[in-house]
Design a protein around this nucleic acid. Structure first.
Lengths: 113, 113
DNA sequence: ACTTTGTGAAACCATTTGGTTGTACGTTAG
DNA sequence: CTAACGTACAACCAAATGGTTTCACAAAGT
């Protein structure tokens, strides 16, 4: 079992904000597959090292990734836990929708209409 | 079956960007449960009508909601289709993670280690 | 006919975002 | 020891964001 403290609004803001840029989604994808140093990541994109580092920082603030120090390198790996939380959030939205549809169905099934 | 054209990066950007503000998530929640006019929505928040209208516009640009005109009102309702797409995206990320874990498991299960 | 209501859009402003370059500093390599 | 590498951070800038107020206009109510 993992820590199941509820996510605050600002935390959710940060998660979706972090996901709202394709470079960051790509970094997330890469680090889900395998741990990578910040330089390795930076080499993949057509922008400065500092820019990539900032993207990594945004993902880290959202706790979508974690870094661990190994010598002078910082190895980045994704945190699937938080991704799962975001997914669960969206799933709850869909549930609201289903409830609405069910309610409508029940109404239509009412005999005295 | 619904239209299954692939989402572009910018479309995905817009979806997550739209989800990255709690007011907009709240609007989405309300309109998932029941159709609401823009004024009805605006009445719920401590900001100007124009501000809420802008939030609605952001959600609409992301196609997370749709509007239909009834007289002078614009009735807003959520589009669960797009929410499902976002959820599916996150699910694929989790799948990448699982593949990584499986690969690691296989490696550890190797007899000649 | 006039007024009110619901919506949209423009202009404006402060803050945030996403990029840049430059600097500093610890770690590894020669 | 010195040079190169990996990272972090600050300062700066343009563009986007999130709010405001104001104006315009069509639809509904009186």
């Amino acid at each position: 079992m993992v820590s199941q403290s509820e996510l605050s609004d600002v935390e959710i803001d940060r998660i979706f904000q972090a996901l709202a840029a394709s470079t960051r989604r790509d970094i997330l994808r890469r680090t889900l597959v395998a741990e990578q140093s910040v330089s390795e990541l930076a080499a993949e994109y057509d922008m400065s090292f500092a820019a990539v580092q900032k993207h990594v920082a945004v993902l880290e603030a959202a706790r979508l990734i974690v870094k661990r120090a190994v010598g002078r390198e910082r190895l980045v790996s994704a945190n699937p836990e938080v991704i799962a939380r975001a997914q669960a959030l969206l799933a709850r939205y869909e549930e609201l929708w289903r409830a609405r549809v069910d309610q409508l169905d029940a109404l239509l099934a009412e005999p005295d209409n």
